[in-house]
């Protein structure tokens, strides 16, 4: 296992790349603010690097016994009108059916 070299800080370019991954259209002042604040927070959490975790398993959940299984059976779910009630844009009971409407996906 390689020792992890911790980044000295977060750059504006990294923040812009992360914003693109997170689907957030940040304005330049937000990019600047988050660059500074993420640097501060990451400098703080850097203390974890001092902790010896060799051989320690990660904990991803604390559900007792893990999530339980249930039979794979069809059960009642939302009616289409209820499911569409909060949609910003939807087609309801058209000849093609009821569905959410979204902007153009392909060019």
């Amino acid at each position: 296992m390689v020792a992890f070299a911790m980044p000295a800080g977060v750059t504006r370019a990294q923040v812009e790349a992360i914003a693109a991954l997170a689907q957030l259209d940040l304005d330049p002042s937000e990019v600047e603010l988050f660059t500074r604040q993420l640097c501060d927070i990451l400098a703080y959490v850097d203390e974890l690097q001092q902790v010896d975790t060799s051989g320690v398993p990660p904990t991803s959940h604390v559900a007792p016994g893990g999530a339980s299984d249930r039979p794979d059976e069809v059960r009642p779910s939302l009616d289409p009108p209820d499911a569409l009630a909060n949609a910003p844009d939807a087609a309801r009971e058209t000849p093609l059916g009821s569905f959410f409407k979204v902007p153009r996906v392909l060019g």
């Binding site: 320690v56 398993p57 904990t59």
Partner: peptide, 26 residues
């Protein structure tokens, strides 16, 4: 969301997220 996306992103996952899950165990 930005911090969470950063710590899960390729190259930082082990150093941050996995490390945090291990210290969570401790």
């Amino acid at each position: 969301i930005m911090l969470g996306t950063y710590v899960l992103s390729a190259g930082y996952y082990e150093a941050y997220y996995l490390k945090a899950q291990q210290v969570r165990t401790l």
